[in-house]
Amino acid sequence: MASNNKKRERTGADTSMKNMTTGVLGKIGVAMKSKPESVSSLVRRCQEGDTFAFQELFKRHVDGVHRHLSLLLGPQEDVDDLVQLVFLNVFQSIRKFRGASAFSTWLFRITINVARQEIRVRSRHRRLNTAVKEVNEVRGTSVRRTPESRLSNVEEVYDVLDRLSDKKRETFILYTYEGYSLQEIAELLDSTVSTIGSRLQAARKELLSHLYK
């Protein structure tokens, strides 16, 4: 389990970005080795409607947004559409960003809102699927899984996680799979460390109850 707590590489300035071109010369294609433009400067330009700055922000953060969405929602086909929706929301509300938190935190909150919205939309279908499974189990058409075969694929992992409430699920995923510390999660979810800690424990307890045979 310790290996899971190891932090994965976070979103940030891509190393390839260090060689990017900036300024007027950069726009017209003249290569100029210099430091990458700071995020705050890009955000400022973005707020003035500069689509080039937005493109730069997109390039820097798209991987992170994609990873967050994939981990929060589990395997699904339309993650690309959701990534697109996140960035559309970012650009639409970038003028409201006042710099009270880091841009990446603000972006993460938008990402998590999009993920929550998606979960809400899909929850009806999930409930239906769960009901069908339960009926099948009662009818004896499906074989009861042994603990060894309980988590044979990633879909089943998310089936178990789907039983948790939104907040517990997010906390559990961020801590366990993304390797964030409680402090970082508290900052990202705009909460306190103690709340996040107890939420994590509650999530584990709930999972244990579900897994109890």
């Binding site: 109850s209 897994l211 045979k213």
Partner: peptide, 9 residues
């Protein structure tokens, strides 16, 4: 079994 399940998860 429950504990193993959680560890596995």
């Amino acid at each position: 079994v429950a504990w193993q399940g959680l560890c596995e998860l």
